[in-house]
Amino acid sequence: MTRPLRVVAAMSGGVDSAVAAARAKEAGHDVTGVHLALSRNPASYRTGARGCCTIEDANDARRAADVIGIPFYVWDLSDRFHEDVVEDFMGEYAAGRTPNPCLRCNEKIKFAAVLDRALALGFDAVATGHYARLRTGDDGLVELHRAIDGGKDQSYVLGVLDQAQLRHSLFPLGDTPKPEVRREAAARGLLVADKPDSHDICFVADGDNAGWLREKLGDRAPNQGGAIVDESGEVLGRHQGTYAFTIGQRKGLRLGRPAPDGRPRFVLDIEPVSGTVTVGPREHLAVDGLTGIRPRWCGTVPGTLDGPGVTVQLRAHGEEHRAVVRVTGEKSAQTVEIDLLDPAYGIAPGQAAVVYDGGRVVGSATISATRRAAVSAR
């Protein structure tokens, strides 16, 4: 057994973080439960399985801490969360990009603000209920690996963590399938054993991203409407704001008339300044190259990765794409060039490209540009 650590267990009020806290204590660590108050105006009750940061969640976390037998506190990080996650989310959509707020929250809140505060208070590590595994490599560096339960694996949203953060992290659930976690919670007497998982974006409780953005952005949006056009420039319809669209979107276009060949149309491009949204057939969404900026490496900065196990994942639960990855430039301005050996569809600037070597996470980068794959004539 490793030496006992002083551990902050980040407790969301869900089953995963509760069992993670219980396991950390059972492993002999000195554990303190902390619930993060991330909303400035928390709702009294969650809507189904959506949302988080509610009063109900805080109460569930407190009850779980009582059952486990650990101290419990609430840390108010709502201002930091609003600035680093919510404002970033709004700004990215307003600029025509598609952000992932879960990655940003892990980077800026859970493993930066929380970890920094924990270390300042004399704690050694932060434990969370994320499904991922940590190993120490032959070079002594801490490696981040996929979880045993592929359906729940969350290594993608942890791909922003660097070596210093990984050295102070614990993921007690990485080797356990989710059904076993629920059974263990019930056996431990945790009332959250059957609580539904949260889905979608936590601060958009009803799941209506477009409606939420329309309400929050208001006059801050670069345009209040524009044209929906086909690839020839023909106007097919109008919209109320580019922030309601993402690359690859099919539903909600409201064009009123089908394509000449009867096939569905998809969003191919978004130009936020002019407000133009371009649509076309799905095959024109194929991408075989990406450029990434602001990379975050879990360990040593790679040069070129082109082995048989090198893959890139472009969505939280998306498929892996075989790839060749090249890192160029100085540390302060590195660029990641990615050639996809398996074309991807519906990839937008702002999304994260997380690089894997087998099951190990190498790092991540924010997509700044895509290269469309050649489309053969029908």
Results as ranks from 00 to 15, higher is better:
residue 302 P to V: 13
residue 336 V to W: 06
residue 326 R to I: 14
residue 193 A to R: 08
residue 311 T to V: 06
residue 36 L to G: 10
residue 233 G to M: 00
residue 23 R to P: 10
residue 140 G to V: 05
residue 146 R to D: 05
residue 78 S to C: 12
residue 56 E to H: 01
residue 290 L to W: 13
residue 178 K to I: 00
residue 137 G to E: 06
residue 252 G to L: 10
residue 24 A to V: 08
residue 245 F to I: 14
residue 151 G to V: 02
residue 312 V to W: 09
residue 7 V to S: 08
residue 310 V to S: 12
residue 287 V to L: 03
residue 213 L to E: 02
residue 99 P to I: 09
residue 121 L to N: 09
residue 104 R to S: 03
residue 126 V to S: 05
residue 238 R to M: 12
residue 141 L to W: 04
residue 341 L to F: 10
residue 60 D to N: 15
residue 273 V to T: 15
residue 147 A to L: 03
residue 367 I to D: 02
residue 352 A to S: 03
residue 69 G to V: 05
residue 59 N to L: 12
residue 164 A to H: 13
residue 279 V to P: 14
residue 318 G to I: 04
residue 244 A to I: 07
residue 355 V to N: 08
residue 188 R to L: 15
residue 220 R to L: 12
residue 337 E to Q: 14
residue 270 I to D: 07
residue 300 T to G: 07
residue 44 S to C: 01
residue 350 G to T: 13
residue 300 T to D: 14
residue 15 V to F: 00
residue 18 A to W: 06
residue 238 R to A: 14
residue 54 T to P: 08
residue 95 A to Y: 08
residue 62 R to H: 13
residue 229 V to S: 04
residue 268 L to K: 06
residue 44 S to L: 10
residue 276 T to C: 13
residue 85 V to A: 13
residue 6 R to V: 03
residue 7 V to M: 06
residue 300 T to S: 15
residue 372 R to P: 00
residue 123 F to Q: 08
residue 197 D to I: 01
residue 25 K to R: 15
residue 143 E to Q: 11
residue 308 P to R: 13
residue 91 G to L: 06
residue 169 S to F: 02
residue 341 L to W: 12
residue 62 R to C: 10
residue 22 A to Y: 09
residue 14 G to L: 12
residue 193 A to K: 02
residue 264 P to R: 03
residue 282 R to T: 12
residue 222 P to E: 12
residue 285 L to M: 08
residue 105 C to D: 04
residue 237 G to R: 06
residue 91 G to C: 10
residue 157 V to H: 02
residue 36 L to C: 14
residue 103 L to Q: 10
residue 189 G to R: 01
residue 341 L to I: 10
residue 354 V to L: 01
residue 30 D to F: 03
residue 4 P to H: 05
residue 55 I to Y: 11
